[in-house]
Design a binder for these strands. Structure first.
Lengths: 213, 213
DNA sequence: GTCTATATTACGATAGAC
DNA sequence: GTCTATCGTAATATAGAC
């Protein structure tokens, strides 16, 4: 096995996956080009050969996350039927995208608005949230979701629950089918797939934590 | 009215409240001493007269947040009675502290672990989460909270919902009794007090979004 | 307690060889 | 496509006058 350590040259895509990992560990602002070069195993100037700079990496990353999220709203399950069923589809789809594109969505949910790219990402995110809130409102009007809590507030709390996945969910297999419910500091190793996770979110959010009497 | 623009000299405390505001707008790593000096209206070197540096401001801020959160666990409502009632007390108390110490808790929930101070804060936060998860487990054992969703997972989702308040909740009165449910980009102005907010969280989390049949 | 001036280091980005 | 060397800027922090 000659030259076993040889690695393919970077593309903007493959470099992105390295960069996003570092961004999520150190924070975007806390990451220097030096950090990126160390993590990628190439020099700073080599990175500039592939991308224009740090912000382009951020833009590519949040675009990927946003494409995934808006894609859920365009699925046929989100377009026809009772509003509550479309709502459940969107919730499950959001969890699916969060898990499938975990590092990209994580980065998206953490941008603060210091640059044009970040402000653009925040605006698109608000647009997504707004469309979900409209759907929630429809389900209230159809009598399936409760209206005694203000719909926008309820939507924010629901998505606060869903989005918090990125704070602790970690994939643990290379096949993309498994994950753990273990947080960064825990040693627990029980497995939770994206589907099981979506089941748990739907059950908790729609039916609550309390045991029914 | 002579010298109306005169302001009291800064103390570490009063400087902290300015700094935390900037940290939350720009992110801790994205905030320079220059940004802080502009916001405080004094020079960089004057800031160093009050505190040792940026990280001391961070340490003071997250300490205040952690003291508030752990304080809830020490209240008598969290110590006696059925586990589900103690759980509700802790949930309401967490919302109360989140709102009362909003900028400090916001900062706490955003630290990434780049410095010793941040790692210490993250460790104390995990300790808090662990104690809440234990309480949840008790309520499951007593038959009042559902056990078909893994308790640690359920606790994480519940606290994901609660903690997401810091992403959009803003006080809008100077009296500390009112607030809005409006996000940074919304123009809606409906008022939601901390108590009403806690009511909404408890109803949604414990009984779910769905209309009961 | 606040200032101006500055030391020192780290950053993002570029030049030019191979 | 990758490297070393370096530019110009901005960062944290300190010195010393008032």
């Amino acid at each position: 096995m000659a030259s076993a350590a040889k690695r393919d040259a970077y593309t903007p895509e493959s470099l992105l996956s390295v960069a996003v990992g570092v961004f999520n560990e150190r924070g975007y602002d806390g990451t220097s080009m030096e950090h990126l070069s160390k993590a990628a195993g190439i020099s700073k100037s080599s990175i500039y050969h592939h991308v224009a700079g740090k912000e382009e990496l951020l833009r590519r990353a949040v675009s990927r996350a946003l494409d995934g999220l808006f894609g859920v709203l365009d699925e046929k399950g989100a377009a026809h039927g009772a509003a509550i069923d479309r709502m459940e589809h969107v919730v499950r789809g959001t969890v699916r995208v969060l898990v499938a594109e975990l590092p990209y969505v994580t980065l998206l949910l953490r941008v603060r608005g210091n640059t044009d790219t970040e402000r653009w990402a925040m605006e698109r995110r608000r647009e997504f949230d707004h469309r979900v809130a409209d759907l929630f409102q429809e389900a209230v009007a159809e009598g399936d979701l409760r209206g005694d809590v203000e719909p926008r507030l309820a939507t924010r709390l629901l998505y606060g629950m869903i989005n918090s996945l990125v704070e602790w969910y970690r994939l643990d297999g290379g096949d993309g089918t498994g994950g753990t419910a273990a947080g960064p500091g825990d040693a627990s190793g029980e497995s939770t797939s994206a589907t099981e996770l979506a089941d748990a979110v739907v059950r908790l959010a729609f039916d609550g934590l309390r045991v029914k009497g």
